[in-house]
Each structure stands twice: as structure tokens, then as C-alpha cells.
Design a protein around this nucleic acid. Sequence first.
RNA 1: GCAUCAGUAGCUCAGUGGAUAGAGCAAUGGCCUCCGGAGCCAUGUGCGUAGGUUCGAUUCCUAUCUGGUGCACCA
Length: 566
Amino acid sequence: MKNKIIDLIVNSVDALGRDEISDLIEIPPKPELGDFAFPCFRLAKTMHKAPQMIAADIKSAIENSADASFLDEIQVQGAYLNFFIKKDIFVKSMVEAAFDENFGSSDIGKEKTVCIDYSSPNVAKNFHVGHLRTTIIGNSLYKIYSKLGYNVVRINHLGDWGTQFGKLIVAYKAWGNEETVKKDGVAELMKLYVKFHEEAEKNPSLNDEARAWFAKMEQGDEEALKIWQWFKDISLIEYKRTYDLLGMDFDYYLGESFYRDKTDDIVKKISDAGLLKDSEGAKIVDLEEYNMAPCLILKNDGSSIYATRDLAAIFYRKETYNFVKCLYVTGQEQKLHFAQVFKVVELLGNEWAKDALVHIPYGLVSLEGAKLSTRSGNIIYAEDILLEAISKIKEIIEEKNPDLPDKDETAKKIGVGAVLFNDLYNQRIKDVSFKWEKLLNFDGETGPYVQYTYARCASILRKLDNYTPSTDIDYSVLTDPDSMELLKEISRFPKVISDAAEKYEPSVVARFAVDMAQAFNKFYNANRINVDDENLRNSRASLVYITKKTIKDAMLLLGIDCPEQM
RNA sequence: GCAUCAGUAGCUCAGUGGAUAGAGCAAUGGCCUCCGGAGCCAUGUGCGUAGGUUCGAUUCCUAUCUGGUGCACCA
């Protein structure tokens, strides 16, 4: 529809090109102002005429055109040219588009690969509310990019290498024992880690001991690596339990340790390029010219650091997957780190680094206003959040719909959906203050609200006799304001997906899901679907059908499944 | 100190170089013998401050204030 209008304007205006016109066309804030609008302010300058007059001129030019038959009316309001499309034609085009099985999909990503590095928890540490964000956002970006035809590689870059394992080994040897670790798993490892830091404050030489153990790991020391592998195995079992609950998986679990034999090459590459400098006994790349702190490549004991391994990972991924983009979903506190690493890649002569390497930061999670801190116990675990949400939903189901089959399965979908939605609804960059009260409220702009709307659609369709989804309907009965608003909402879907991808922002999709649910509920309250008039019934049923379908597709992009009943 | 992100309604947040800045939560009142009330409708206050660019700025730029985060051997 928009293209047809662009055609008309292109033929009537010489001053602007097609693309400029396309950018200028907007959807008016109120339906009374038309279906599409073209503001003429921009033209006023080049044409040396008042915008109102320009609008009037274009109007008469278009009205005399034979191609304008799909228009009902054109109005000039101030500098705006408002287009009113013949309602049944408009409805038909929107319904047919939404019926398409691939509505919203695209092939712009065809034969292009995007790597997404997300979740990436630190081994031997608990998977807490903070890790949930990267996991959920990364998973949604995976769905969104897949929908656009990209080949997406999901990489869990486990924090399974580094000095913290030296600390852990020191602590385990000093205060731990095998039985307790076997029994309590990650919780016990966390205790040992905390204990290490307490003791190291009194006795700083412990830090040197820890670094020494890590250096041993890097040199392939058998004892050190055996303990390390054991800790890693224990941790992975717990993480996978959470991923299962979330209904998520990864293509690769390639932690930092995977790159440990690849860091020498990186150091050589940097050195060969003449970028490696000595500084206080360590090796760095000086980035002063770019207004950044130096990027540390090797510590003064010669062992690698996370930047070295991130660099190794970038080159490995570029070679292995030949990505067009590699996305890093981590907290915004790592912004400088990624800026440094990406700059080093670029300085090594890789122009692609500028566009292909993207840090996708998200805001800090705090708990009831205070910082998350394992040591002070101000921490909340991902698994507990999910289980709590599921159990609260179960209570509500028992109360509202005790006869529902598959109550547990449904409660899981809704509970997990509530958590996911809650994390995806606001822009990534916003800091989050975790509050149980907010998470467990399922009214208004929430996952359960959208899922409820979906279940309502499903229920309506179940109760109709003799309805098979079809576009062979009477479009003229769907021209009332509520139906039109709903249809317009639905037809935004493809743009919503491409916007979300472009901005790396799942919240765009989440907002859309709520907008659509609201538009549907409004329609539902104003119009009865199961009416005697077969013509009307089938037409409205088709509208319900595409609403249901689009809600489901939108929620799937967030990683959320919609139950048919709840 | 330097860098960076954010400041919109009591709270949590959308939003756009343009038409009267929107939702939800919380509060109060209401909703059809009928398709699912986790729903729908109604009721109020607001773009941190000061300049600049522009026909037009809440949006872009500069300064400033407030808050968050980062600034080498942790990741």
C-alpha cells in the first residue's frame, strides 16, 4: 500500500527522490488523520512555496491520476497530505499479508552468518539473576536473526579459564574436601571462592599463589588441570538445568579454555605488527591515540588474560564461521573492554572489525536497590526465580482453571514466559532493580497477559463450528475502527522484526506483542465473533486467526511459548 | 580526574526532527442474561536545567546538574 502511495507522489513531485519520499511517509498519530501521511515541510525550501500550497498542488495532481483508484480520499491538513485508502482494499491487503505462512520472515540474511556470544557464565560461580539477562537477550536475538534468514551460531563462551581457578585451587587445597564439593556442587565452590578472598585480605601472598597455580594450568600441569576439569563438569550440570528450564540451547559451549593454545599466535601477530609494548613488566597495546586505556595482552608472569582469549576467539570465529557479524551480549560495564579488543583487531589490519564486531550491552541488575553480592548474601539465583514464578502461576491456575489439563506443563510455559518477558520488555540498556513483587504481578504489560490473549483467541476459534481459516472472506465487514486498528497493528510485524534486529533490541518485539494484545482485547470487547451471520462470523474469525498466529510468532521471537489454554 | 550510559506522570517505562507526548502499576468508579474478568472502559500531573542549530527540538549539538558504570595484571 505504501509503495502505491510512493508511486503517486513520485509522479507528482520532482524535487525529491523515491527513497526520500519513502522515508518521509508516516502513519498519522490518529486514524481520523488518515492511513498514511506525507508532510510537505521539506519541500517548502526547495520549491519556495508554503507547504500548505504544495500539499494542495500534489493533491490535485494525484486526484487526476488514473492510478489513484485505491484511494478513498486525500485531505490537506496544514502541511500534511493525508491519504485515506478505500477500506475494503486496505483490509484485504493487510489480511492477505498476515495469512502468509512466512509473514514477518525475510531472506535478507540468506547465506550470511551471525555469531552471538551470550550467557557465558563464569564456571564455579552461581548462575544468578544477572546472568539471566544476557541469556534471555541473546536467545531472543538468535530467534530474531534466524527469522530474517541469517544462519546464527549460538556460542556459550564459558568463563572457564583464568586466575580465578588458581584461587579456587588454592582454596580447595587449603580448606575444601572432595565429599563436600561432590555433595553441594557450585554452592561449595562459591564458598571456597569467598573464603579465599577473605583470607587473601589478611594474607596477600595467597594471590601470588593463585596466580602461580593458574600459570601451572597454562603450562599444562596435570594436577591443576584435573581439578579444574572437575570444577567445570560440576558447574555445567547446574547450568544446563537452568537452560533446560528456559527451553534454550547453544550450538557450541566453547569456553575461554578452548583458546588457551591459540593465544600465542595472537601475541605473535600483535608483536609482528609492532603493536606490542612493555609496560610495568606486562605486555600491552597502547591505545592512547584512541582515547582509551591500554589493552593488556600478557600479565607480568607471561600468562594470558581475558582480552588475549577474546582476541583469539574473534580470529577463530572469523576463520571458522566467516561471520558478517559477531555479537557480544554482556553487561555495559564491559564496554571499554570490548572497545579495546575490537580496536586491536582493527589495528591488526582488519577493516571488517568496524562493522562486524558489535558489543551489545545491557544495564546493571541490582537487588531491591542494592548491588548483587555473593559475599553479603544479596544474591538471587536464576533457577529460584524461574521455579518461584512457575509455582505462583500454578496457584493461579488452581484458582482460576482447576480443570485445565497439563497444569504443570502450562504453568511452566507461563512462569518461564513471565520471567523472559519481564527481562525483554524494557530497553536493554536500562538498569534493572529486581523486585519479586513486580516479577510476580501478571496483570497489564506482562508475558501472561499476552499469553492470556493468545489463549482467548484459541478458545474462540475452538468454539466456532465450520470455520476453516481462509482469506476468502467479506473484507467490507472488517472496516470498523477496532478491527482496522487491530489489523494495522498486525501489519507492523515485519517492520518490527527488522527494527529489532537493526537495533539489537528485543524489547521492540515485546512491546509489539503487548500492543497487539491490547488492540485485540479492545476489538474483542466491542465485537462478538460467534454471530449467526455466517459472512460476518467467518470474516471476524479470520481476523482472530491472524491475530493468534502473529502473537504466537512474536512471542516465539522472545523465546516464549504460548499455551492453547491456561 | 578522564571516559561512558541514563534522566519523560507518584512508581516502572514507551515514544518521535513535525499534527493534541503515550502505556502499565498503584488509586477511584464502572462493564453487555452472550465467544475466557490474567480482560475492557473512565478519571490526573510530566519531557533535569540553560544555551544553540532548525520553518519546527522532548528528540540533534554544547554546557551544566543528578544518578549508574568503567579506567592494566579479575572476567
